[in-house]
Structures are given as C-alpha cells and as structure tokens.
Nucleic acid binder design. Structure first.
Lengths: 168, 168
DNA sequence: ACCCATTAGTCGGATGTCCTACTATTTATC
DNA sequence: GATAAATAGTAGGACATCCGACTAATGGGT
C-alpha cells in the first residue's frame, strides 16, 4: 500500500491532478465534468431509490407514473413516454411491464391506430404517484444538498449541455 | 393527443412548471437538479461509451484500467479500487472479471494477506488505457460543452454535493 | 388496389449497479 | 491458544439501460 495521496482527498480532484501532470490540460476539465456527473448521479439516484423503496417503485417507474399522472388524460402512448423521458423504447416497455404487474397502470389499445399502445394510470397508480411525490419532495428535493442556490446554476448549465446534445 | 406544451420545450423546465403549479416551490429546484443530473449523466455516458466501443471496453472498465495504469505499482487490491471509484465491491468483481477475460489485467495473490486479491494491469492493458485516454480526451473531454467555464462551476458544486453526501 | 418504407412495441442478450448471503482469512479478545 | 468479530472477495438475484432483430400495422407512391 504505497499510496502517497493525502487521506480524505477528492478522487476527482486527484484525477484532475493526474491529467494535468500528463499535460492533458485541455481535457482535464471535461474529464472532471464527466466523472463528477457519474458520481453525483449515483449519489442522487441512491437517495431517491432509498426513499421510494417502501412504495415498491423505482425512480424510472416513478417518472413514468408522474408523466401519466400529470397528463391531461391520464394516458399516453408508449412512444411518447420514451420521448419525454429520453429513454429507449425498450426501457419504457420494461417499466410499463412492472407498473402493470403492480396494477399501477394498464395497457389500452389506441382507438384509431392499432400499432399504438396507450398506457393509462390507475387510481392506485395516482395514489402511489402522489405519495411518492410527497415523500420525495420532503426527503430529497428540499434537501439543501440539492436545492442550494448554486444548484440552480448547475441546472442551467446542464440544460445548455442537454440542448447542445440535442435533448430537446 | 391534447398536448398544449410548446414544441421542442425542455422536459425538465416543463416538470418544474408542473411542480410550481402544484405549489411545491420548495422542492422544484431539487427536482430539477436531480432530473438534470439523470439526463446529463445519460448523455455523457452515452458519448463516452460510443468513443470507447471500438476499443472493446466500457467506461466502468476504463476507470479501473486507468486507476491501475496511473498507480505506482500497476496493481491494487480489489477493495481499494472500489473505494477510489466509489462503487460496490461486486461491481469491481464484475469489471475485473471482464478485464481479465480480455487479458487487460490479471488477478494476483497478495504476498502477505491471503484474503486480498491484487489486480495487476498487463502490457496490453496499458496500451488500451493509453489509447482510450487519447481518444476520450480528443473526442469528448475537450468538448467546449464539457470543458467550458460554466461547467467548471458545475464540477465545484457537485464536489460540494458529493462531500455533503460523504463521498470523500 | 398493391408493394414497400416507416412507425410502434416487444423479445432476447449484454452491461453495470446494487443488495443479501456465503466462504476464507485475519485480527482482536478473553 | 481458542473463539468471536471484522475484513476481502465472490455468487446469485433484482433492476435499468441500451442495441439489434422481429412482428404488426399504417401509409405513400405507382
């Protein structure tokens, strides 16, 4: 164990020092940005999943549920769900399979286009969506760890990044 | 399809409007922050994976490989890898299994502690690590989108967030 | 009307992540 | 010294994500 790094140092700051030591100065910021995103994502997801666990849903399913709950009709085609949430069609199929098994949503045929499957939220689905939102709001989203003023800047910068990437 | 949202709008901005419309003002920032992290993570990961694909490694394996490549001895115990990368032990086992199958690393017994498994990078592993870094630096990390000044602010804020979460 | 490209979903497979055991080994305690 | 507690890794299972391939249905161009 010949680790000369100071204890309790930030692994990402350490990686940046390595990058700069190798002369990759142009890439150091980008490397730090990508790595930071990975870790922060993991932390945030973990906190959210912990809170949602008692309700027996995951964040992926919560997103689907809320999209339906807040939609004007309480139902959306599979494809639209994928577009809004920016996930692959097969991920939507997966999430809806599980939500349907839990009786939180139901697949319905589209009235005019038989290719399309409508996903409709159930009464129980709405209950779970509301309870989940209440808990998430209280225990995660209002936490200063994530709602501090600088975090608004993060949201703005990431919005630009997403837009550049063609996210919307 | 009664969707009155303007076309090409940002789904996250839309979600924030929904939150505020429901009076969840305290949670709107946090919700937007978490959701932004999810999407940005997905975008960044996708770009990285696309670049690494020809080298037949993933970002998870690249991180392990670089950690070893930049270590003083070219080898580290499994547990140390997990601590540095902030991932679960079983994720390290998984990544090392695949790296070993590709002959980029090799498991070695620890000289004094027989519980410990040392992971040692091979010559081929170093080649792949260097080539991957070169490509990532050129095609992803130097992207103005990720190496911009605002993105540096993101890295700083996320560092605080990670620290609050006990990441280091 | 008919054929073919496009669109909507699903299926199977690959990856990565986590969690809960479980084994093997080391270390601390009595 | 023997036993209990802690540590290092692995195995199996659950989830989510993506990709490529496949089925079914729609619709445009001739």
């Amino acid at each position: 164990m010949v680790d000369r790094r100071p204890l309790n140092s930030d692994p990402i700051a350490e990686a940046r020092r390595q990058w700069e030591a190798h002369g990759w100065n142009d890439a150091a910021d980008g490397m730090a940005a990508v790595t930071s995103l990975m870790r922060a994502h993991q932390i945030a997801l973990s906190r959210v999943e912990t809170v949602l666990k008692p309700l027996e849903i995951t964040f992926a399913r919560y997103e689907v549920l809320m999209l339906l709950h807040l939609s004007s009709r309480g139902s959306l085609p599979m494809g639209v769900i994928g577009s809004r949430l920016q996930v692959h069609q097969t991920s939507v199929t997966n999430a809806v399979d599980r939500l349907e098994a839990a009786h939180l949503v139901a697949r319905q045929p589209h009235p005019t286009d038989r290719r399309t499957t409508l996903v409709e939220i159930s009464a129980r689905g709405r209950q779970v969506a509301e309870r989940a939102t209440q808990t998430l709001n209280a225990e995660v989203f209002t936490d200063p760890l994530l709602s501090s003023a600088p975090m608004r800047g993060v949201v703005e910068t990431l919005r630009d990044m997403r837009q550049q990437a063609g996210d919307f």
